[in-house]
Amino acid sequence: MNMHFSVLASGSTGNAFYVETEDQAILIDAGLSGKQMEALFKGINRDISKLSGILVTHEHSDHIKGLGVLARKYKLPIYANEKTWKAMEHLIGEVPLEQKFVFGMETVQSFGNLDIESFGVSHDAAEPMFYVFHHNGKKLVQITDTGYVSDRMKAIIKNADAYIFESNHDVSMLRMGRYPWNVKRRILSDVGHVSNEDAAIAMSEVAGDNTKRIYLAHLSADNNMKDLAKMSVTQTLQTKGIIVGEQFSLYDTDPKTPTQLVSI
């Protein structure tokens, strides 16, 4: 009666996340090529053709690159809100009408024994939203691609058993890096991405007694490193009185290698 999940890929080059229960198998985003997505599924010993559907968070290419290919090849239903559908339809190619479904903002849809709750984030896309997965009293949260974590978001995601949490950049690396200023300004803005330190502050405010796992996700290839992200988050949490390894553990994600399929 457990919920299992794997962060298949996470980073600037592509994102995909997998959740399953006894009778459901859901893919969230398909931000890598069709061949790469198939390889990722082999890496966790799962079959794409058995998916119940694909949920979309927003229309940026690192979240939908392989979406159309997979949906057409395996005849999979796609779920997204109306504004995201309008923004991405010309990017994913023709998808049969019977495979297109609307998943509204701030709603809950039930997929068999899995209840999925959508919530809005602050990102420069048409209507970006992420998801909370509820099953058998357990709660799993995916929150990346947001410029900040608002009080409204914190209330929705509070005290989950596990989080896939954006820790996109180190501010000093970003400021000193090779990106042009307009790109740096966009990343640092309220509709950009959350830094290591800001992610840790938000974690300290939402983690609860149930929280056991937090995965650091969507790390920038140019403006972050796994060890740096983990160190920064750990140190910031410590200033808030939270010792990593006691209340919960931190885990890496990777742009090419899926995390171990684990259960909560």
Rank of each mutant, 00 (worst) to 15 (best):
Y148P: 14
N224Y: 00
S195T: 00
D209C: 04
R213P: 00
I156C: 11
I156V: 10
A202C: 10
K230C: 14
R152A: 12
F165R: 00
R175S: 07
S220C: 03
K158R: 08
M225E: 13
N182K: 11
P180K: 11
S150R: 06
S220H: 02
N210K: 15
N223P: 03
V194A: 15
A160P: 04
R178T: 00
A217N: 06
H169D: 03
L219E: 04
R213I: 04
L228V: 07
S172Y: 05
Y215F: 11
H169M: 14
S189Y: 03
N159A: 14
V206M: 08
T211K: 12
D227L: 00
N168I: 10
W181N: 15
A207W: 07
D190K: 11
N223M: 12
D209G: 06
H218C: 08
N223S: 14
K184C: 10
N159D: 14
N210R: 14
V206L: 10
K226Y: 01
H218L: 06
I157R: 09
V171G: 02
L216T: 09
N182A: 06
L228H: 01
G208L: 04
D151I: 04
H218K: 07
S195N: 06
V191M: 09
S195R: 00
R185M: 06
G177V: 05
N210H: 11
L216G: 11
N224A: 03
K230H: 14
K184S: 09
A200H: 01
S189P: 00
Y163G: 04
S220N: 00
I187S: 05
L174T: 00
Y148F: 15
W181H: 15
K212G: 12
L219K: 06
D161C: 02
V183F: 11
R178P: 04
R186K: 14
I187W: 05
I157C: 12
S189G: 04
M153S: 08
M203L: 14
V194P: 14
D222L: 02
V171T: 02
S167N: 08
D209H: 03
H193M: 08
V206R: 04
V171M: 09
A217V: 08
M225A: 14
M203K: 05
H218Y: 06
Y215R: 05
M173Y: 07
S189F: 07
M203T: 06
H169S: 08
I157K: 08
L216I: 10
